[in-house]
């Protein structure tokens, strides 16, 4: 009983501390960016990077290294799940679960699967124009594959092809960064022309990177889902 009360007291302290420091020291919604770095992103973002979506400009260009780190995190997690669940999988070809998906789900998945892939591709191709980008597009692709897994009990992805695409795409991202370093002495420098904002082929290397991230995130999340689903019951 005392453990519960200690926990509740501590949680109350934490809640009060976080809420009140935020409430009275950081008034909600007032314009604090004048002192910080973000007004450079806002005022010079478009003509610096050519991307009209400022968030994408920051994610890929200004703080591109964070995204490189981010992709590494996901890559490590996928490898980690693979290493953790190694040789716990069921023998090939054995059905995943007894009950077959209903007819509607199976036909629906056959129709919707390509649509969802296309929609995911649309998201990360237009990363620098419309909201959304590599991560969101990749997640949509992963849900598409998940949908396929749910509907078809014997379907599972071909590991070699997925690992190949994953590493090819990952290497392009790293190569883009290294080429930036070779050409201009700055890692991940935007060496392609910015083009006119709003165009599809604008914003230099941002679309390339975001396409790479989109495919990579899609492949990795599907890999994680596949690893977990394949575990012997």
């Amino acid at each position: 009983m005392i453990k519960k009360s200690i926990a509740l007291i501590l949680i109350a302290i934490l809640f009060v501390a976080i809420f009140f420091t935020l409430a009275n020291d950081l008034p909600f919604g007032d314009n604090r960016t004048t002192t910080g770095v973000s007004d450079k992103y806002i005022y010079h973002g478009v003509n610096d990077t050519g991307a009209s979506n400022l968030v994408t400009a920051i994610v890929v260009n200004y703080r591109g290294f964070d995204t490189l780190g981010e992709v590494t995190v996901l890559f490590v997690a996928a490898t980690g799940v693979g290493a953790v669940l190694y040789n716990m999988g069921r023998p090939a070809g054995k059905k995943r679960k007894k009950t077959e998906a209903s007819l509607i789900v199976r036909t629906g998945s056959r129709i919707l699967f390509p649509m969802m892939l296309l929609f995911g591709a649309y998201i990360f191709v237009h990363g620098h124009l419309t909201p959304g980008g590599g991560f969101q597009g990749g997640a949509v692709i992963a849900t598409a594959f998940l949908f396929k897994y749910v509907s078809d009990t014997r379907y599972h992805i071909d590991h070699n092809k997925f690992t190949a695409t994953e590493s090819v795409v990952g290497m392009t991202f790293a190569l883009v960064g290294i080429m930036g370093l070779l050409l201009t002495g700055y890692f991940l420098f935007n060496f392609l022309p910015n083009g006119s904002p709003g165009e599809l082929l604008s914003a230099g290397i941002i679309p390339i990177i975001y396409v790479a991230i989109g495919i990579k995130v899609g492949a990795e999340l599907t890999g994680i889902l596949d690893n977990m689903m394949e575990v012997e019951q």
């Binding site: 909201p131 991560f135 969101q136 997640a139 992963a142």
Partner: peptide, 23 residues
């Protein structure tokens, strides 16, 4: 914050729920 909304919807609701159910 539309970008983040999409990300949270797709990843937060989609993938992590799937992972939880599998687990």
């Amino acid at each position: 914050a539309p970008d983040v909304a999409m990300a949270e919807a797709a990843i937060g609701a989609g993938i992590s729920t799937a992972v939880f159910v599998i687990a």
